[in-house]
Amino acid sequence: MNHATYVAAAYAAAFLTVAALILWVWLDGRARRRELAALEAAGIRRRSAGEAR
C-alpha cells in the first residue's frame, strides 16, 4: 500500500465513525420524540405539561 491509501483509509474510518455517531443521536432523538407524541396523543401528560416547554 502506498501512503495515499493509508491517508484515505484513516479519513474514511474517521468519517464513518462520526457519521454513525450522528446517525445514532438523530435516530435516538426521533424515536424518543415519537414515543412522547404517542403518549400525549393517548392523553398521558406530565403534571407540569401546562408550563412553558
Partner: peptide
Amino acid sequence: LRRRVATLR
C-alpha cells in the same frame, strides 16, 4: 426525553 417517556409510562 427517554426519562420523560419512562416516567409517563
